Simulated scan of single mutants.
Amino acid sequence: MVKLADGIRVVDADAHMTERHDLFTERAPKGYEDRVPHVERIDGVDMWIVEGKAFGKAGSGGTVDHHGKKHPFRDSQGGSWGINDVHPAAWDPKERLRLMDELGIHTQVLYPNAIGIGGQNLRNSVQDPIVLRLCVELYNDAMAEVQAESGNRLLPMPIMPAWDIQACVQEAERCAALGYRGVNMTADPQDSGSPDLGDPAWDPFWEVCAGNQLPVHFHIGASQTALSYFGTTYWPSQDDYVKPAIGGASLFQNNSRVLLNSAYSGMFDRHPDLKMVSVESGIGWVPFMLEAMDYELEENAPEYFHKLQKRPSEYFASNWYATFWFEKGRGDLQHLVDTVGEDNIMFETDFPHPTCLHPDPLGMVGETIASLRPETQRKVMGGNAVKLYRV
């Protein structure tokens, strides 16, 4: 096995935790047990039910079985698997920690599954504003317990009530008090009736996030708009096993629009300490986009270009991070990392999703990572995340 540089404490900046069936009901106030998300068996299939309506299958949330073997998406997560078919580390925090020890991973940043990676499935399924806000708080309370009980080795990202800016401000403040190290935000709050993120109406939220050292995370597929990339980019004639590959790859490029819009919006001039993370989108597209965002704005809106305090591309270095896992930089990862910026990159595994590095994440990337300078290895494999998440 290829040996990495000494002193690396590996931080996995993107993994997922399948929601346990009793996650909401065990914390629900009396009288709300049947109104918050819970699981009922319908026609032989476990389904998530909220307010009397199904909003999705209570599936596995992963493709790794109990023996650590990965299966095609169509046969597992996207097929018939339920929570009992997936590796228990997908939903059990104690099993997750045990597996992390086995794999040599110290800390993991976690994102949801069934409720929508940005929490959007709740907004789409619940009409009562009291129940909707309760669902957000119950989920975030449960994940705060996971973090605390893990000794901050598991760092879930809490979901935000994106349909209500003031509620986001309040929930971010509450989550900071609970010890969270960031927030999980949808890229498209306009899907749920709020202004888009470039609107100055969001400034109070950015102020709270920056002031409490809560980086704002944009995971691919964290909105209905973003998910349209997954379901519409493949040609209908493609094989059913090929379609998820096309959809998944298309989602990566979708995050570039969040970087573009945020840099052009002026939000970082107003909130220079605000940090954002592009999650599960890779880094190979970043150098081209940094060039394109400068060129396009200066060509099309020169007056606005000169109103910004920095060149658009410079906001990536000062305010953004990106995660990567399988990329090799066309044989020269060090050049790619240097072009993107070694202080702005974090490693991820995406466990237990279809593209995760399993069953041996460090072994799978060991040779590629070993090609990096020792100091670069320390930063991208853990050091940057240790600093960002205060671990």
Rank of each mutant, 00 (worst) to 15 (best):
L4F: 01
L274N: 09
E95D: 02
P88L: 07
L97T: 10
S60T: 08
H271R: 11
F288R: 14
I49V: 06
L154Q: 10
P312S: 08
Q238S: 14
P215S: 15
Y315S: 02
G151H: 05
M17V: 14
V258Y: 01
K3S: 14
R257G: 07
Q166G: 07
E348V: 12
L333K: 01
H353P: 03
S278Y: 01
N124R: 05
G198H: 02
N384T: 05
T63Q: 10
V50G: 05
T25K: 13
E296Y: 11
R41P: 00
I130R: 09
N140F: 00
P312Y: 01
W206M: 12
K53N: 05
P302R: 06
G68Q: 06
P204T: 04
G7P: 02
P272A: 12
S60N: 09
M143A: 04
E367I: 09
G104K: 02
Y389R: 08
G211M: 05
P129G: 09
T233Y: 07
V216K: 01
K69W: 05
F268L: 10
P200G: 14
A148V: 00
T232E: 00
G182M: 10
Q224A: 13
R181P: 10
D188F: 03
E298F: 03
V380G: 06
C209D: 04
G284A: 14
S150V: 02
D12T: 14
G179D: 01
V131D: 07
W235H: 15
G383S: 06
N261W: 06
K57Y: 00
G341R: 07
Q127R: 14
T18H: 05
W81G: 12
R373A: 15
H271S: 07
R257S: 08
Q253R: 13
K275F: 02
E173G: 00
P374K: 01
G231T: 12
K69F: 07
D196F: 03
M1V: 12
A177G: 11
T232Y: 06
G44V: 14
P361A: 05
A245T: 11
Y111M: 08
G329Y: 04
G383C: 03
L134W: 00
A15I: 09
D196S: 13
D239N: 12
Q309R: 15
P361F: 10
